[in-house]
Design a protein around this nucleic acid. Structure first.
Lengths: 212, 212
DNA sequence: GTAAATATTATACTGAGTACAAATTTATGG
DNA sequence: CCATAAATTTGTACTCAGTATAATATTTAC
């Protein structure tokens, strides 16, 4: 027990990565719905059951950065300066991501292809929507927890839904702009324009709450 | 051909209704995921294939008012008085629904049970999310079509996403209020409060666009 | 080196959804 | 009323995701 870099741990990580790599390759080449789990298992030289051991649902083979966005929100809110409004923290986070060209705010041909693969698969689209809703729930809980007063929960749920919706629309516009013009600068501008307008509206929405 | 009240048409409608009724009964009694399509077919005295003929996906047996909300939005926007801002039209629509205690804005034990059944089934939840996104796309198209100027599309997409998100959150708060207090008046108040705040914020968001 | 813990595999199953052809039922034209 | 066309229903056989369970192999710990 407690064997950090033991052989077993390393092997597990290796097979997990091998399965994920093989799967990603097959998905982008032929489309998510045209690749069966059995094929992936065979290509990864592993049994079908092992694939399901590591990735309970087939969609998990495609989306593997679910946790990251959650952690980012959590960290940003936890480390926010005393007295800063949560909504401002989130706005700053978006700007910071855009400035650093973080993967979540970057638009390349690879990201376009990634989301095209998602759009072409009902299962992947459904999973993306599910992740979005989970993120809203998480953010609502974080926001409610960031504020002492009771009965702020309804406000937190509205704020969370609005912020994540704004992010989603902004990202979609950034992607659209990339496909149209292929300019990193114009994509970034499109994202930030939607975000700025959205945040100012959300601030108006929540002006009498502790979140703004 | 063109036989409106022909025997064939009547029989089709009857079997469709019979299947739907039997399915609904089984679903609320035992939960969506604990009832198989084969069982429904047997209970409706019809073959499994016939069920899939009428309802391509199992989820369609549960949600049968998808088209209605779409039509309502379309009609409201199409019949809006000259010069009225689309956003105001949508706000008025919500108030009208709440005043008339329309099924979409009513909260009873039956609605609570309906949405509990949805929440307990991953498949139904996924379908509900899908319908929500389809409604956003539809509304975006309607809004863009309601305005002459070009390049208003991005605004329309933001407006549509925000309005439907507001409706969703408002409805959820109404449902929550019903479960907590079981008062029609307080549920209605909860819905309208979220809607009013949301619409004023969305109006601020879109203040320099033709939608407000 | 042996025994316990943990990963992997084989097998068999359920249930949704699809393809396709056969059989039944309704409509239509004489 | 009959024959034939059109539409509906059904039977059969299939694919694939996901689950359950028990057997087997591999790593770890003592």
């Amino acid at each position: 027990m407690s064997n950090q870099g033991g052989l077993r741990e390393r092997k597990k990580e290796a097979t997990r990565q091998a399965i994920s790599d093989v799967a990603t390759e097959l998905f982008v080449a032929r489309g998510f719905d045209n690749v069966s789990v059995a094929e992936i298992a065979e290509a990864a030289e592993v049994s079908r059951m092992t694939v399901f051991n590591y990735f309970p649902r087939k969609e998990d083979l495609f989306f593997d950065r679910e946790e990251e966005s959650r952690q980012m929100l959590r960290a940003a809110l936890a480390e926010r300066p005393d007295g800063e409004a949560p909504l401002m923290t989130l706005r700053n986070l978006v700007h910071s991501l855009a400035d650093r060209a973080h993967p979540f705010a970057k638009f390349t041909d690879a990201t376009a292809k990634f989301w095209r693969t998602v759009a072409e698969s009902p299962a992947l689209s459904a999973r993306a929507r599910e992740m979005r809703d989970e993120l809203i729930d998480d953010l609502a809980t974080l926001l409610a927890g960031a504020i002492k007063r009771p009965l702020a929960d309804a406000d937190a749920r509205l704020a969370a839904a609005m912020v994540i919706t704004a992010l989603t629309v902004a990202y979609a516009e950034g992607l659209r702009e990339h496909k149209a013009r292929r300019s990193a600068a114009s994509s970034r501008a499109a994202v930030l324009q939607v975000m700025e307008r959205s945040f100012s509206g959300i601030a108006a929405m929540l002006k009498d709450t502790p979140y703004v």
